[in-house]
Amino acid sequence: MPDTRTDSTLSLTNVRAGYGATVVLEDLSFDLADGEKLSIIGRNGVGKTTLLATIMGLTRLHAGRIGLGALDIAALRPNRRAHAGLGFVPQQREIFPSLTVEENLLVGLRPGGWTLERVYDLFPRLQQRRTNMGNQLSGGEQQMLAFGRALLTNPRVLLLDEPFEGLAPVIVEQLFQALLRLRDESRLSIIMVEQHAKLALAFAPRTMVMSRGRVAFDGASRTLIDDPARLDALCGIGGGIGVAH
């Protein structure tokens, strides 16, 4: 029998990618274990979103390997990658405005452990709003919907791009609770790109800090929580504010 190691769900090896001829990610590598949660932080413009887009196949890959389980997905189109097990919650949420909440949820449905009932259990608000159109939702509801839609594709790895951006603090709190529940109770691997270092470090035991398209730090979140000075140095002014006090 060949060695079918499943401990590494997602692995990037020497990935160089960007848009057109422009390279945003330089020689980036990391592994994500099955069920592992990873936060990615860094200044604006260091390539965090580009990293998620590259994993999803929405950018131009210049070099490197992207593995999902035993599969090399680097040459696959985005829809094949989704089928292979990637679920992507984009920064702009991208709700379909003329579908209802429930239709938005079901449009990408693939069989698996995640069902409509479980999503409604996680986000009761969505159930209340199930007949509303996508364009009638608040920002927080849209974000819940974007989560739910991705979960119902029953992915192995969930990619979250700045899920709390532009939301009121009380909504952020609610969403974060739901995310923690997801973290603690599901076996999903999750990568969360986040501006707020506080939330990012609290979410995942492991944090990666990016700088200019490379990995500047990859280790225990605890290390950065305990060493605000280092976090500040890595993330620059503002990045560590949430932890510093």
């Binding site: 929405l58 829809n79 992507f88 449009v107 990408g108 839609r149």
Partner: peptide, 9 residues
């Protein structure tokens, strides 16, 4: 693009 990202060909 979104439809593609949730797995639709």
């Amino acid at each position: 693009v979104r439809m593609q990202a949730i797995g639709t060909g």
